[in-house]
Write a protein that binds this DNA or RNA. Structure first.
Length: 853
RNA sequence: GGGCGCGUAGCUCAGUGGGAGAGCGCUCGCCUCACACGCGAGAGGUCGCUGGUUCGAACCCAGCCGCGCCCACCA
């Protein structure tokens, strides 16, 4: 260490994250440590594909947590010498991005319709170029060791190739098809959306009962509905086949009020005779259940509500042109006028809404592209059943399997402009449909001009290919051979189906292997008050503000420490704990680095405390490593913290300070060695502060980020030393507590005499007792230590202290006696438990006797 | 309707059968030559309720109360 560096270390008594982080990060990038060569094979390498954040996004707490976990594992494995790749990239996020740009256009007083498709898409690209990299910069602030030299985007050239290849192959296999089918129409984004993008909310509606007259009779069938406007599209009334009340009406017809259409009365088991009157109006065009029933019975499918959410011509006068809500009022009024409205009652039920736009879903029949999932799901079920893809925590395995076993076709087309335009071309002349990876020049059948499908693919169709498309698939690339399958994936559970399941399916089908070996479903960090963190609720906490204020290491430590298997509230205290730890690391390191002798770092135990520390260090390394490997980040962080703070700093450093100040070589070597291993162990969790401290370490020959990760050294384990030091620590604690109880002045050294073997030297020093040989009168006893009379302590305090301790002991003795007096306990409890209890009893009795003298 | 999870110190959370833990907060004492973002010592829990199993239960079982999440086509 040169004089200038030494001076800086001497005077910097507080760790300043803001001063350190940008500088250290630049060094890592310059070193090229995060951009591995595609050598080796996936079994020996380590790779992770980042869940691609949306280009619209800014780093939020979920990213920060997820990123802290991934980075911890990637860094640990990189330090272990594995070729480690953490792939960076972003998602074009169809609906979300389109919505953002449309909002911007609205502010400019224009719209995508006005611009036209081509110009609009150009605007989105321009927007992406400007804002799309924002989140990447934010990941750097977090310290994420991503491969910044190879950033992917789900719409970049190579990626589009992968998407088109997959679509084409699925089409050729007959999995992808086009059909007129009931879809979730989102009037907000003017597109169909998948089942997974729909959320059900409780809504209070009115349940209307309407009389449908039976043709050629004066009977009526009363049906109940919350959407009376859809009656205009009714094509049947259904009753349960076993419902005797209506048995004679099956096969008859009703006359649809307001419309006059003859609609059949049909029998279907889906109808619950207990609900309402037991008669159900059937609207195949606007209700998913009715659609199923309609297809089963071959009913006509009429659509009266258009994609714009308004009534179309099929609705007839006077309803055509009204919004659905207006139409509802008008229909109810008309029914009331005709005397067909029997009842109106408030009714609470769950209603589908679009997660994207928030609009109420309008179920309608529409011509869309679908993907059949059964065949893709089958092997994806098997690999999870056989734990070839392990899901942690394990309860999510069943959730995954349950969903996969019930999987339904996936509507993959979206009526948007931003996304992968579906690779299908139509010939209007000869009605030919061509599915191709590249645009055909002309119709193969009649040489006529071709028109490409207007629709784009669901964003998740492309993200499903993420782990292999980012590595260059469908080309046979070196990256693919080196890094696929990836090692693990960590994700929020909300995208387990939307994304994770689909990656497993496409990985097996197209890349020939599972996309990752391990899936860790992490907990959700809630707002401080327990609500969801969300921008719209105003409950979000900005990770960048936390980083600015406390440092990236503090946030990383805090997030890992607060994460567990259950959802937790964001804890400022845990982030502060991380900041405190960074500062403590810095200062403990200053103590060591500024005082050691010039020696090689090495374990050179000279005293029992050295052997104790080395043993505890090895145990901690083994334990923290095991915790990280099983994705138990919270305990890994907590254990590393406890070892460093309580054992290394509070005890070991205090014990060896005199030796350190004397410049003893053994303790210097041991301290440097322990510091090196501790920094390396903590580096995956707190990369910045550990790297910064490492830059002052005399053993440094390169960056810590590529230093070897410590493997636990069994030969340093030393149970005897641990037991002995533990005894000394325990005695020190009791002596300190005694001082406090008798209110001895903090700085005063009290006289004492040891009975039997004298305690370790540090006991007297740290507890501030001076052990002598002379035989003054003992005024109290703490374990083997007799405390001698002195002016600093008063007798009354001693008496009360003695009594308090005796009381404690009496209670312990009676507890142990009670237990041992229980014949059943002695007879049935394991022998070692009973023996332990006997030893305790003896010990307490002995001490009690001693104090009663 | 089905499934999963939670209820432990004032707060946020660990703890899956043998004497209740952490961080923060609180009280008392310390500017002890690494750190006051610090050091030392404490106070503070009938482990949601009721039963059961067991020599022994925060932990296993049953029921109940309260809270949360996911899935689901009852109009």
């Amino acid at each position: 260490m040169d004089a200038e560096r030494r001076k800086k270390l001497e005077k910097t008594t507080r760790y300043e994250s803001a001063e350190v982080e940008a500088r250290i990060f630049a060094e890592w990038i310059e070193g090229g440590y995060f951009h591995p060569k595609p050598d080796g094979d996936p079994a020996e390498n380590y790779s992770v594909a980042i869940p691609p954040p949306n280009v619209t996004g800014a780093l939020h707490m979920g990213h920060a947590l997820n990123g802290s976990m991934q980075d911890a594992l990637v860094r640990m494995n990189r330090m272990r010498g594995r070729n480690a790749l953490w792939t960076l990239g972003t998602d074009h996020a169809g609906i979300a991005t389109q919505a953002v740009v449309e909002k911007m256009l609205a502010k400019e007083g224009t719209s995508r319709q006005e611009l036209g498709r081509e110009a609009f898409v150009e605007r989105v690209w321009a927007w992406k170029e400007e804002y799309g990299s924002r989140i990447v910069e934010q990941y750097k602030r977090l310290g994420a060791s991503l491969d910044y030299e190879n950033e992917r985007f789900t719409l970049d050239e190579g990626y589009v190739k992968a998407v088109y290849r997959v679509f084409k192959q699925l089409y050729d296999k007959g999995y992808v098809y086009r059909d007129n089918y009931m879809v979730n129409w989102d009037p907000g984004s003017h597109s169909a959306i998948s089942d997974l993008e729909v959320e059900n909310r409780e809504v209070e509606d009115t349940l209307y009962s309407i009389d449908y007259p039976v043709e050629g009779s004066d009977r009526v069938l009363t049906v109940a509905t919350v959407r009376p406007e859809t009656m205009l599209a009714d094509t049947a009334v259904a009753v349960n086949p076993d419902d005797e009340r209506y048995a004679d009406l099956i096969g008859e017809h009703c006359l649809l009020p307001l419309v006059g259409r003859r609609i059949p009365v049909i029998a279907d088991e889906h109808v619950d005779p207990e609900f309402g009157t037991g008669a159900l109006k059937i609207t195949p065009g606007h209700d998913p259940n009715d659609f199923e029933i309609g297809r089963k019975h071959g009913l006509e499918e009429i659509g009266v509500i258009g994609p714009d959410g308004r009534m179309n011509e099929e609705a007839g006068e006077p309803f055509a042109g009204l919004s659905a809500a207006e139409a509802q009022e008008a229909v109810v009024a008309a029914l009331r006028e005709e005397g067909r409205l029997r009842e109106e009652e408030p009714y609470v039920h769950s209603v589908p809404f679009s997660e994207r736009s928030g609009a109420r879903i309008e179920p309608l029949i529409s011509l869309q592209w679908f993907c059949r999932m059964d065949e893709l799901a089958a092997p994806a079920i098997e690999v999870v059943e056989r734990d070839e893809v392990r899901i942690t925590p394990p309860q999510w395995k069943r959730v995954y399997l349950d969903w996969m076993r019930e999987i339904r076709p996936w509507c993959v087309s979206r009526q948007l402009w931003w996304g992968h335009r579906i690779p299908v071309w139509y010939c209007d002349a000869c009605k030919e449909t061509i599915v191709a990876e590249e645009a055909p020049a002309e119709c193969g059948a009649c040489r006529g001009p071709l028109r490409q499908e207007e629709d784009v693919l669901d964003t998740w169709f492309s993200s499903a290919l993420w782990p292999f498309a980012t590595l260059g698939w469908p080309e046979d690339t070196a990256e693919l051979r080196a890094f696929y399958p990836t090692s693990f994936l960590t994700t929020a559970r909300e995208i387990l189906f939307l994304w994770v399941a689909r990656m497993i399916m496409t990985g097996i089908e197209f890349a020939g292997d599972v996309p990752f070996r391990d899936v860790y479903v992490h907990s959700v960090i809630q707002a401080r008050d327990g609500r969801r963190m969300s921008k719209s609720l105003g409950t979000g906490i900005d990770p960048l503000e936390e980083i600015d204020e406390h440092g990236a290491d503090a946030l990383r430590f805090g997030l890992l420490a607060m994460s567990s298997t259950q959802d937790v509230r964001f804890s400022d205290a845990k982030v502060q704990q991380g900041a405190d730890l960074a500062n403590k690391l810095w200062n403990a390191s200053r103590l060591i680095l500024l005082n050691v002798a010039e020696v090689e770092a090495a374990p050179r135990p000279a005293g029992v405390e050295d052997r104790w520390l080395l043993s505890r260090l090895e145990e901690t390394i083994a334990s923290v490593t095991a915790k990280l490997e099983e994705y138990d980040f919270a305990h890994a962080a907590a254990e590393a913290y406890a070892f460093f703070w309580s054992e290394l700093c509070d005890w070991y450093l205090e014990i060896v300070k005199p030796r350190l100040y004397e410049g003893e070589e053994e303790v210097s070597a041991t301290l440097l060695w322990a510091l090196e291993r501790t920094l390396a162990l903590l580096h995956p969790i707190m990369p910045f502060v550990t790297e910064e401290i490492w830059s002052y370490h005399p053993s440094r020959h390169g960056h810590l980020t590529v230093h070897s990760f410590p493997g636990a050294d069994q030969s340093l384990l030393d149970p005897e030393a641990e037991a002995e030091v533990r005894t000394g620590i325990e005695l020190t604690r009791r002596l300190r507590a005694w001082r406090d109880l008798v209110e001895a002045p903090a700085a005063t050294v009290l006289p004492a005499r040891a009975e039997g073997a004298p305690p370790r030297e540090f006991v007297g020093r740290l507890a501030r007792f001076e052990f002598g040989e002379d035989g003054g009168d003992p005024v109290a006893a703490v374990g083997p230590v007799k405390i001698l009379a002195s002016e600093a302590i008063d007798a009354e305090a001693i008496a009360s202290r003695l009594e308090a301790r005796r009381e404690e002991l009496r209670s312990e003795v009676s507890r142990a006696e009670g237990k041992l007096g229980n014949e059943k306990f002695v007879a049935r409890a394991p022998a070692e438990v009973v023996e332990e209890e006997r030893e305790k009893l003896e010990r307490y009795r002995a001490e009690l006797e001693e104090l009663s003298e």
